[in-house]
């Protein structure tokens, strides 16, 4: 009994005592950090890494904003990096301490939310497109028409993920507008098209991996990683990159303003930009990473995966879906509300 009491007492006090000694506190999405890669980092630098999970960008932001959170690094999505910077929650990076910064692939260096990568480094990225069961429908799947203007074979078997930003970005690009369009004429077309398409949909649901594998859905709006997992369960599933424009997203590592273990945080950010370690991250989370040269270290099934390696012909069709604001957000919310009825 006494032993347990002492153990608990130690546990209660441990976080305060050990702060100075080779520690690093990472705040990340759950089930997103490769344990093997963390082990390697810990062995290499003698730093103990503590990972804490969050389940949404909003929870993470709320906790960090409240202060005294105790984290050194966080991994917000692209649209949130700017908000962190604006609110003064993160520090500008000292690039001299990140020799591997040069490994960031050119297309991920000057991104809309962080010109020159002075505030954030890449973690993982992916796309939003469509998954189709090619046994049910044999036509062209690289189009948003799959859910916006569905072919006869797919009607009544289509799912749309309940993510306002992603779905409206696809729909707006399909109607010839830009992501976060504020043009009332375009948004009117988007609204009419979505409402006209809705009767052909079967559901608006997140569980696409399961239900595409089971043949419950014949098509769905989908993220590339979950499409890949669905294909591993059902070889008929294929991922389409809508040629009218598909969505892109990226999660990024940021250094928090009140980080206590700044040196270790720099070591870690540099470490994950080494191609080999970036590949280890991808092997676990099943998304691409944005580090040049990491392909060589990727697991075989990802090197060639059509969901992970964007075909060259569609490379310029991807557009980032950042959080829209003002009028654009008003239109989107109004359309989305109407769509949910």
């Amino acid at each position: 009994m006494k032993k347990y009491l002492i153990a608990t007492a130690l546990l209660l006090s441990s976080t305060t005592l050990a702060a100075a000694e080779g520690e690093l506190f990472l705040y990340n999405w759950g089930n997103y950090t490769s344990p093997e890669m963390i082990k390697k980092f810990e062995d290499q630098y003698g730093v103990k890494v503590t990972i804490t999970d969050f389940d949404s960008n909003d929870t993470a932001l709320a906790k960090i904003e409240a202060g005294a959170h105790g984290f050194d690094l966080a991994v917000p999505s692209a649209g949130f990096v700017g908000i962190y910077a604006e609110k003064g929650l993160i520090q500008e990076l000292d690039l001299a301490r990140l020799p591997n910064h040069a490994n960031i692939a050119p297309e991920w260096m000057n991104v809309a939310w962080d010109e020159g990568r002075k505030w954030s480094v890449p973690w993982q990225w992916g796309s939003t497109g469509v998954s189709v069961n090619t046994k049910v429908y044999t036509g062209d799947i690289n189009t948003s028409a799959i859910f916006m203007d569905p072919p006869e074979e797919l009607k009544g078997k289509i799912n749309v993920i309940p993510e306002m930003g992603d779905v409206l970005a696809l729909a707006t690009m399909y109607e010839g507008g830009e992501v976060c369009s504020e043009d009332p004429a375009v948004m009117k077309k988007v609204r009419d098209a979505l409402l006209a398409a809705k009767p052909s949909w079967m559901a608006m649901d997140y569980s696409t991996v399961e239900k595409m594998s089971n043949n419950d859905y014949a098509a769905t709006v989908d993220w590339n990683g979950s499409s890949m997992r669905a294909r591993l369960g059902n070889a008929d599933v294929a991922y389409g990159y809508p040629k009218e424009g598909f969505g892109l997203w990226m999660d990024n590592v940021v250094l928090l303003k009140d980080a206590k273990n700044v040196d270790n945080a720099y070591l870690f950010m540099d470490f994950i930009m080494q191609p080999e370690n970036a590949a280890a991250l991808s092997a676990f989370a099943r998304y691409a990473n944005g580090i040049a040269g990491s392909d060589a270290f990727m697991p075989e099934d990802m090197k060639t995966a059509p969901e992970i390696v964007t075909p060259a012909e569609f490379a310029d069709k991807g557009h980032f879906v950042l959080a829209c604001s003002g009028k654009a957000l008003e239109y989107q919310t109004a359309i989305w509300t109407e769509l949910q009825k």
Binding site: G30, T50, T52, D53, F54, A62, H69, R229
Partner: peptide
């Protein structure tokens, strides 16, 4: 718990919440 946990203080339920977001295993 999700709101007031400090670093490294995930409990079983908050750990499970984190799992659900990505792929459920």
């Amino acid at each position: 718990t999700e709101f007031i946990k400090s670093p490294g203080q995930d409990t079983l339920p908050t750990f499970m919440m984190g799992q659900l977001r990505r792929s459920m295993k």
